[in-house]
Amino acid sequence: MKIATWNINSVRLRAPLAARFLREHQPDVLCLQETKCPNELFPAKEFAKLGYEHQSVHGQKGYNGVAILSKLPFAAQGTDDFCREGHCRQIRVTFENGLELHDFYVPAGGDVPDAKLNPKFDHKLDFLKRMADFFGKRKDSAKTPVVLVGDLNVAPLEHDVWSHKQLLNVVSHTPIETELLKTCAAAFDWIDVTRQFVPENEKIYSWWSYRAADWEASDRGRRLDHIWASQALKGAIKSQKIVKKMRGWEKASDHVPVMAEFDI
Rank of each mutant, 00 (worst) to 15 (best):
P38K: 06
P38Q: 09
P38E: 07
P38A: 11
N39Q: 02
N39E: 15
E40L: 11
E40G: 01
L41S: 11
F42N: 03
F42S: 02
F42V: 05
P43V: 06
A44V: 11
A44L: 07
K45Y: 08
K45L: 13
K45E: 15
K45G: 09
E46G: 06
E46A: 15
F47M: 15
F47G: 12
F47R: 12
F47Y: 14
A48T: 07
A48D: 02
A48N: 00
K49E: 15
K49Q: 13
K49I: 02
L50W: 04
L50G: 07
L50Y: 04
L50I: 10
L50Q: 06
L50R: 08
G51T: 12
G51D: 08
Y52G: 12
Y52D: 04
E53I: 11
E53L: 13
E53T: 15
E53C: 14
E53D: 10
H54F: 14
H54Q: 13
H54K: 06
Q55S: 06
Q55V: 12
Q55H: 07
S56V: 01
S56T: 00
S56D: 04
V57F: 00
V57W: 01
V57P: 02
H58C: 04
G59N: 08
Q60T: 11
Q60F: 05
K61Q: 14
K61G: 08
K61E: 10
K61D: 06
G62T: 04
Y63E: 01
Y63N: 04
N64P: 00
G65S: 10
G65T: 09
G65R: 03
V66Y: 03
V66I: 05
A67C: 05
I68T: 13
S70L: 11
S70M: 02
S70P: 06
S70E: 14
K71L: 05
K71Q: 15
L72P: 01
L72T: 14
L72K: 15
L72F: 10
F74P: 11
F74C: 10
F74S: 08
F74N: 03
A76M: 05
Q77M: 04
Q77Y: 01
G78Q: 08
G78F: 02
T79S: 13
D80L: 10
D80Y: 08
D81Y: 06
D81M: 11
F82E: 03
F82N: 08
C83P: 01
C83V: 07
R84C: 13
R84M: 09
R84E: 15
R84N: 06
